[in-house]
């Protein structure tokens, strides 16, 4: 039987070592692709985002393990625009998001083997992103297609919100009458 850690290790848990390492590695690699201001500026942006995310995780008590995504998102948006449109940049964009989600799973008082079980959840987004990546390789890029893809994503998002905003049918209580 494994116990949840002592209060002394809360700080270490809030920082989340493995998620931090993965996110930092991918974000720094993403920064190297900066062609607008150069790789050093790209890496500096990445380092700044990681440090800001880490500080938010440590300093903000309850919502820190969620709000830390904000500086990372800002960095990815910048790095995505600064990097040339290549398969490597798209792959790094996917990997950065997956690493950040894994980092989000590493929260204080999390049950054991949390990262391995987070992997089960991340299979679906990873597969979805890979399908999109492969499609991107086969279809030549164009501005119209980007707009259509974004529109489809927004529609999909709206449908998901509408569907999940309601109660799940499987969890409705059984009827008290026949």
């Amino acid at each position: 039987m494994k116990s949840s850690p002592a209060p002394g290790s809360i700080l270490r848990q809030r920082s989340g070592r493995w998620g931090l390492a993965a996110t930092a590695t991918v974000t720094l690699a993403f920064g190297l692709l900066d062609r607008t201001e150069g790789p050093f500026v790209g890496m500096a942006v990445g380092v700044g985002a990681i440090v800001a995310a880490l500080l938010i995780r440590i300093l903000v008590a309850r919502m820190g393990t969620v709000l830390f995504l904000a500086p990372l998102l800002a960095a990815w948006a910048y790095l995505g625009l600064a990097a040339p449109v290549t398969v490597l940049a798209e792959l790094l964009s996917v990997l950065a998001a997956l690493a950040a989600l894994a980092w989000m799973a590493e929260r204080p008082h999390a049950p054991p083997a949390i990262l391995r079980r987070a992997g089960d959840v991340l299979v679906l987004p990873a597969v979805g992103a890979m399908i999109a990546l492969v499609s991107g390789l086969l279809i030549p890029p164009g501005e119209l297609r980007i707009g259509v893809a974004a529109l489809l994503l927004v529609i999909a998002l709206g449908l998901v919100v509408l569907t999940l905003g309601r109660s799940h049918p499987a969890s409705e209580p059984p009827s008290s009458t026949l």
Partner: peptide
Amino acid sequence: GAVALIITAVAARDPIPLFGALVLLFAPIG
């Protein structure tokens, strides 16, 4: 976060942020 990335991608006409947005959109469904 996904919506922010999508808006950025559409505004800048750059597909790369869309891939990160895709992961964030699919994670809750996963």
